[in-house]
């Protein structure tokens, strides 16, 4: 049987880890998409979803570390990953640049995540076969 032609996805995650299942469902979906030969053009963290980008998340050792699992996945497949700037700054998610700009003492967002605007969401949406929104279930 012929396999279907490869397609591309933009994945928007709006549910935070440890308060929703959204990051896990999105990760399982993204892994399956890549196994099937498709491409993930962009992972865009929006609203509470930006918490997934925090390097400071320190879950108990017997629980899944969703931020770490996502980072490994994004790095190993070199997927552009964006943390929405407006959502991030309000919630205390800062990279080095923003941390200096707002004179804060730490930065919890590093590569592979970039802090950028909604333009990244729109551009990847327009360039992908499908955009999926992984919202919290509450």
């Amino acid at each position: 049987m012929d396999s279907p032609p490869p397609q591309s996805f933009a994945l928007v995650i709006t549910g935070a880890p440890y308060s929703s299942q959204a990051p896990q469902t999105a990760l399982n979906f993204a892994e399956a998409a890549i196994r099937a030969g498709h491409k993930v053009n962009q992972v865009f963290l929006y609203g509470d979803g930006v918490h997934l980008a925090s390097n400071f998340a320190s879950p108990p050792s017997d629980e899944s570390d969703w931020p770490a699992l996502w980072r490994v996945f994004i790095e190993s497949h070199q997927i552009p990953a964006t943390c929405c700037v407006a959502s991030a700054l309000r919630r205390g998610l800062l990279d080095e640049t923003e941390s200096r700009r707002y004179e804060k003492t730490g930065a919890n967002v590093t590569a592979p995540y970039a802090i950028a605007g909604l333009g990244e969401w729109l551009e990847s949406t327009l360039n992908s076969s499908r955009t999926l929104y992984f919202n919290p279930d509450h």
């Binding site: 407006a86 909604l118 333009g119 969401w121 729109l122 327009l126």
Partner: peptide
Amino acid sequence: HWKGREILDMAFSAAAFDQ
């Protein structure tokens, strides 16, 4: 909560990019 404001930002952003 903030969902309404955040979806509004998306709508304005799409419109700003002529969508």
